[in-house]
């Protein structure tokens, strides 16, 4: 039950392989202690991002403590922002998109989350990688 309270992590890449690989690296670090979902690729299976799939990933990694999203390039961020706006209003304020590199950010954020940290702390840890 305690596991559900940890902040969830969503990985959004243009590439399904990158998303899956980053998720593997996160699990190696934190196991199943953090709700985790990874998506990559467009609706046709090519490189790109898919708003519907991102919404599904947020649902899958949902935690009452919130969800931190890590993205790679431009479209992943724009589509993630769109997905967040399309989530139910009471969830929106508990979802953040981190300004951090995808792989390093996901591992750092998940490690922070696995200790039961708040969404703000999880985001701050990921964003420290940007020198912030």
């Amino acid at each position: 039950m305690g596991e559900q309270k940890n902040v969830g992590i969503v990985i959004v890449s243009h590439s399904a392989k990158v998303a899956e690989g980053a998720a593997d690296m996160v699990r190696q670090m934190v196991g199943d202690s953090v709700p985790l979902a990874a998506v990559g690729g467009n609706a046709d299976g090519g490189l790109g991002t898919d708003v519907g799939a991102i919404m599904g990933a947020i649902d899958k990694a949902w935690s009452e403590s919130g969800v931190a999203i890590l993205v790679d390039l431009g479209g992943a961020e724009t589509n993630s922002e769109m997905a967040v706006e399309m989530m139910p209003e009471d969830r929106r304020e508990r979802i953040v998109i981190c300004n951090a590199p995808l792989v390093e950010g996901a591992v750092m954020a998940a490690t922070e989350a696995s200790g039961g940290s708040s969404l703000d702390a999880v985001r701050a840890t990921a964003e420290e990688l940007m020198g912030g």
Partner: peptide, 15 residues
Amino acid sequence: LVMKVGGASGPLYGT
């Protein structure tokens, strides 16, 4: 467009 385009242009034209 938002749901189908799959690039940044989806949210932009969709918006």
